[in-house]
Amino acid sequence: MDKSTIVCRCEEINIDEIETAIKNGAETFDDIKRLTRCGMGPCQSKTCFYPVNEIIAEYTGMPLNEVSLPRLRMPLKMVRMSTLAQDSEGSNVVSVFGESVEDGES
């Protein structure tokens, strides 16, 4: 396929950029994300996750079930900052981010 074909439509990242990232040592979706912004758009990789993993699998020869999943972070869906910051029923931005189960992990 033409290497200029877009894979991540939100961030306009093409096959060539993803393969370059792999050449530079990327092994997982998250590695590629850090190098290219692929997966960081409004859909939060819901669209590009499988196509990217297929490219990794094809390029590295790793079976699809061994290509690791992208790391998920809250909030799960797009939401306005003001909505998170709104202090209602004892809950605010601190509770969604700070109290989250991911707290303390990098």
Partner: peptide
């Protein structure tokens, strides 16, 4: 109402677009 996350005590965080609550 959208489930957008969870709290450390496992309560589910939900938003209606205006506010977020457990």
């Amino acid at each position: 109402h959208i489930m957008i996350g969870s709290y450390r005590n496992e309560n589910i965080g939900v938003t209606d677009g205006e506010k977020t609550f457990a």
